[in-house]
Simulated assay, not measured.
Amino acid sequence: MRNTLLGAATLSLAGGAALAGGLDRSGQGINLIFEEGNVLQLNYSYVDPSLSGSLGGASSGNVGVSYGVPHLGYKRALTDTLDFALIYDQPFGAHVAYAANYPLSNPANADQLRADAETHALTAMLRHKIDGGFSVYGGLRVQSAEASVDVPAAGYSTTSDTAVDVGYLVGAAWEKPEIGARVSLTYNSAIKQTLSLNENGGTGTHNAGIETPQSLNLDFQTGVAKDTLVFGSVRWVDWSEFNLSSPNYALSTLVSFANDSITYNLGVGHRFSDKFSGALSFGYEESNGGTVSDLGPSDGYFSVGLGGTYSLDNAKISFGVRKIVMGDATTHNGAVFEDNDAWAAGIQVTYALN
């Protein structure tokens, strides 16, 4: 029951982290390490935001660019007490593009206010099971980062190189399989990276230090009735320490965040037959108030998701859809963004190799 329900639970959360605070994308999940035996897992979520506002009566257009979030993993049971997992994801990113006639763009040249940031991470981890249902785990994360930003109204543009650096994760879990119970707490370290910025078509250069943030993930689940599981998570991300700036940009700071983010998810899953299970989940991130970056013009969100899993002999095929209602926001430059939302959908295949 447990593994089938968890597939449905995972996909009911499709795209949830992808519109969380700051530049959060994947949520840095590591639940693969708790799968039984040897498995290969492929997951893909697609996020389609509808995010628009106005400044001085001029419309921003839909600044939210649709994008996909892949997640690949391999888990192997090395012994009865030792497991290994290798996970690829894209933990952080941004995709924003304003209309060419927006005041902070450049209507004369049809240049757009825009930002693109992308990270890729490969995490290798080990889990050791100890007595009483407890286990500890940890590993190393190799992460690449790159970014480009255009602010035509300030006469500024930049494209970075790709920086590659290493961080780590550590965690502990408790499980009681007979009732489907598990609680896990995972700490993901910050990763300091230095981006070489090629600014204004090569007329300026600058090495900019950034720190993709440390975070804590608390995940929990338990059976509450026959074939029924309650699950949830709390994720804290230290976004207040993130800053991308350059002395060659008129306002110095390109992207920063005044507040950390805390994201909550809660849901219930039910097995309807030996082959099919479903899940319903809700997500929430509180609005911080104040102003936000023009490159991330929303503040908090509420979401609801539905997911299902169909089990075959050696595979579980999970699917999900999620509606995300984004919080209203006012940007640093005074633009107002209201009544915005997004749709996200995902599919996951988990294949048992033994």
Rank of each mutant, 00 (worst) to 15 (best):
L6F: 15
G7M: 13
T10R: 13
L11W: 07
A14N: 02
A17W: 01
L23S: 01
D24G: 14
G27V: 01
Q28P: 04
I30N: 04
N31M: 09
L32N: 04
I33E: 03
E35Y: 12
G37N: 10
G37K: 07
V39P: 09
Y46M: 13
S52T: 07
G53A: 03
L55F: 06
V65T: 10
S66V: 11
Y67Q: 07
L72D: 04
L72G: 13
G73E: 04
K75Y: 02
A77W: 09
T79I: 15
T81Y: 13
L82A: 08
F84I: 09
F84L: 08
L86V: 09
Y88S: 15
P91W: 06
P91I: 01
F92L: 09
G93E: 01
V96L: 13
V96D: 00
A97E: 12
A99N: 14
A100T: 10
Y102A: 03
L104Q: 15
S105G: 13
P107L: 05
Q112H: 12
A115F: 01
D116A: 09
D116P: 00
D116N: 11
A117V: 04
T119A: 10
L126Q: 00
I130R: 07
I130V: 15
S135H: 06
Q143E: 15
S144P: 01
A145M: 10
S148R: 07
V149S: 00
D150R: 07
V151E: 02
P152V: 11
A154K: 12
T159Q: 11
S160K: 04
T162V: 14
V166M: 12
V166I: 15
G167L: 11
Y168T: 13
V170A: 09
A172R: 02
E178S: 15
R182I: 01
R182N: 01
V183H: 05
L185F: 10
L185C: 11
T186C: 04
Y187I: 06
S189R: 06
S189F: 04
T194F: 10
G201N: 04
T203S: 10
T205M: 13
N207V: 06
A208I: 08
L216Q: 03
N217V: 07
N217M: 11
T222R: 12
V224N: 10
A225S: 15
V230E: 03
F231V: 07
W236N: 01
W236F: 14
L244N: 03
Y249L: 04
Y249C: 03
T253S: 13
S256C: 06
S256F: 08
F257Y: 09
F257L: 00
I262K: 01
T263R: 02
Y264D: 00
N265I: 03
R271Q: 14
L280W: 13
F282N: 02
G283D: 02
N288E: 09
N288K: 11
G290A: 07
T291S: 07
V292L: 05
D299L: 00
Y301I: 01
F302S: 13
V304K: 02
T309F: 08
V321W: 03
K323H: 14
M326V: 08
M326I: 09
D328G: 08
T330H: 01
T331P: 00
T331C: 00
H332S: 12
N333R: 14
A335E: 01
D341H: 15
A344F: 00
V349S: 07
Y351T: 10
A352C: 12
N354H: 13
